[in-house]
Design a protein around this nucleic acid. Structure first.
Lengths: 220, 220
DNA sequence: ATGTTTCCACCTAGGTGAAAACTT
DNA sequence: AAGTTTTCACCTAGGTGGAAACAT
């Protein structure tokens, strides 16, 4: 019976909150980076499909430099322009989703897979787990990876490093690794916001930034 | 070379904050249970030793009825006394530590393994993940289990259920399951504190309960 | 000049016991 | 009468952008 064969549906990952991401993208998304580490806003969240319920997956994120340039914001033209050569990339820009590894069933059941615990830092090397080191005034592109695994005993960190090797040119692709990249999540790193429209949109859309929303009437 | 054989050191788990647990125990520990679910205080925390760094373990907790009695607190004698037959035990009183499964290396490296996300509820069956259903006015004894596993694809929930079978009388013991029980963590469930000394000790030792510590001078 | 760090008021989010209301 | 539920003020914990201080 030919229908016994499970159709090999392609694994998919969809970015959530696309409208919000696109609003930011159209203004030139900025992400604050600090020594202590700062969350991304918006948060990268994905919905995955067609995982095998019985198989385990490690889901992780990395953040790639878009180019090797340094940027500066020109106020009078409200634009980011190249300001010179970029700094050499920093190691360990990988964040493993804390639920990893988990079965396809679990990943799909939990609905949204959120990377909200990830923090961006400008420390040379991240001390704290869950932090990703980036250079300020550079452009970056987050990626989401889904790694199918049957190896429970090797630490996820090691498996992820090996898997990422296979993405380099001239190496054999790893059939267990699925990589997704959403153009609307590109951003520029800053230590203080440059574009005031970005600031306003962050305040308007991030619940933790409502302290200065407007001059509110003193209650009572 | 005889020293090539790793000595099979027995897996150990030590209860943390023993002094605090003993203070409560000596007064007759009470734990509030609510519909929404309430954390335990003190929290069950353990330190584990002699896990194999390269092997994976699921660590979980369950809460056993101490007996099949219902209790009531007699104020004038400040004592808990049997008040009749207990209610029949509720299913699913198991809480899998959210880091499960993880390698022995990880469990030991993180120092303390805390069950602080566990919540006690008096709902007949726990709706929310991470909640354990108990009867009010009953005595309970938490247990901590360490389950060695090489099976990454079977959900931890299923593995745990199977493993627990092996603890029943007349079944073959499971050599991959290590079970620990700390007498000082016994407690009685309540919906409102009975012993005022317990209330005072909770307020004095739980940072979240400091709202009524004392009549504080109004600042400003 | 330009970019970074530190500190802070203002939020969200959620863990407490007390007290009142409710149930049986 | 005894036990449960609901609500709430008071906390802890921690995520924001602003402003001032600092660094280069």
């Amino acid at each position: 019976d030919i229908f016994r064969h499970k159709p090999a549906l392609e694994i998919k990952a969809d970015l959530c909150s696309k409208d919000l991401w696109r609003k930011f993208h159209s203004l030139g998304t900025e992400m604050i980076i600090t020594k202590a580490g700062r969350r991304m806003f918006p948060t990268v969240k994905v919905r995955v499909q067609n995982l095998d319920p019985e198989t385990s997956y490690i889901i992780f994120m990395d953040i790639l430099p878009v180019d090797d340039k340094r940027y500066r914001y020109v106020y009078h033209s409200s634009q980011w322009t190249v300001a010179g050569a970029g700094d050499p990339p920093l190691p360990r820009s990988t964040y493993i989703h804390p639920d990893s590894p988990a079965s396809g069933q679990l990943w799909m059941a939990q609905g949204v897979i959120s990377f909200d615990k990830l923090k961006l830092t400008n420390n040379r090397r991240p001390v704290v787990r869950g932090q990703v080191s980036l250079h300020s005034m550079h452009k970056y592109q987050p990626r989401v990876h889904i790694l199918r695994t049957h190896d429970l005993d090797t630490p996820a960190e090691a498996q992820v490093l090996v898997a990422l090797q296979s993405l380099k040119k001239g190496t054999v692709p790893n059939p267990d690794l699925y990589t997704f990249s959403f153009p609307e999540t590109k951003f520029t790193t800053v230590t203080a916001y440059q574009n005031q429209q970005i600031t306003r949109l962050k305040i308007a859309s991030n619940p933790f930034a409502k302290g200065f929303r407007e001059a509110s009437k003193p209650s009572r």
